[in-house]
């Protein structure tokens, strides 16, 4: 469904420096596949996500969804960012309905749809609360509802649990798997956490920095439904081990020399 063909993205900084954020990246993602992007800072994960979102365009190569080139944001895509970025003046319900309002797609069923989503993430009864009355994890749940309210077929998540504490983070990861099980979608999920990447994904795309490239794509064979208990599972272990090798292996330098 999503297809990137030799995508390169170069940013030009103010002083004229050219920074290659992505170089020659090819990737295709099937319908309802869960793909995670993992890699060190500066490997172009977020750039890749924003290209799929249509927020930025590739400098070279093509990005397409269902055969149609991505030239602008597409209304059937939902996005969750690292920060919940809820509107502080609007209630939880109005925050969830926000994309529909912006797209002028409000109808009589919208409120019910939003309420059903809030129920799905366990926030029934919080509809009229203000975002600041919610904990960080709950705010991020609202942000997930907001990304799902217009029933997108693609969900893009840019380190959505990065700002949460470790316990909430595990809980939210399982929660996301449950939501994905109930409402299958194509998910592209950027993360810094190797364990998170392996627990969630059908395939993990490991990226390397400067310039951002795909180092390797790893199939995760662990059967679903999954949980963090799978860490003992050999397939799980093998996948995380390989990813660690790809990310940290290249940094090992002989004694007496500074790490690159």
């Amino acid at each position: 469904m999503i297809s990137l063909n030799r995508v390169t993205r170069i940013f030009e900084s103010r002083d004229g420096d050219r920074i290659t954020a992505l170089e020659d990246v090819s990737l295709s993602i099937r319908d309802n596949e869960f793909v995670t992007l993992v890699g060190p800072s500066g490997c172009g994960k977020s750039t890749l996500l924003r290209i799929v979102a249509g927020l930025i365009l590739p400098t070279a190569g093509t990005a397409s969804i269902g055969g149609a080139a991505i030239t602008e944001p597409r209304s059937e895509t939902g996005i969750v960012f690292q920060a919940p970025t809820l509107l502080p003046w609007a209630s939880v319900m109005d925050n969830v309905l926000f994309p529909l309002r912006m797209m002028h797609r409000m109808d009589s069923a919208s409120t019910d749809k939003a309420a059903a989503l809030l129920k799905l993430v366990g926030l029934s009864g919080f509809e009229s609360k203000s975002p600041r009355e919610l904990s960080g994890g709950m705010q991020q749940r609202v942000a997930i509802c907001r990304a799902l309210v217009h029933e997108p077929d693609i969900l893009l998540m840019d380190e959505p649990f990065g700002a949460l504490d470790a316990l909430t983070r595990e809980e939210m990861t399982m929660e996301l798997l449950r939501i994905w099980g109930e409402r299958p979608k194509t998910v592209l999920f950027v993360t810094h956490s190797i364990t998170e990447a392996v627990v969630l994904a059908d395939r993990v795309v490991v990226m390397s920095p400067r310039p951002g490239r795909i180092a390797e794509i790893i199939e995760v064979a662990t059967p679903r439904p999954r949980s963090f208990d799978n860490e003992a599972n050999p397939a799980f272990h093998e996948a995380t081990h390989r990813i660690r090798q790809l990310i940290f292996g290249q940094r090992h330098v002989g004694p007496g020399r500074a790490a690159a």
Binding site: P73, T85, F98, M102
Partner: peptide, 19 residues
């Protein structure tokens, strides 16, 4: 991120300003 969200919702500059 909110500006990106607004762009992702294909909102006009006017509703981005207003909302």
């Amino acid at each position: 991120e909110l500006i990106e969200l607004s762009r992702a919702c294909r909102a006009s500059k006017w509703s981005e300003l207003w909302r």
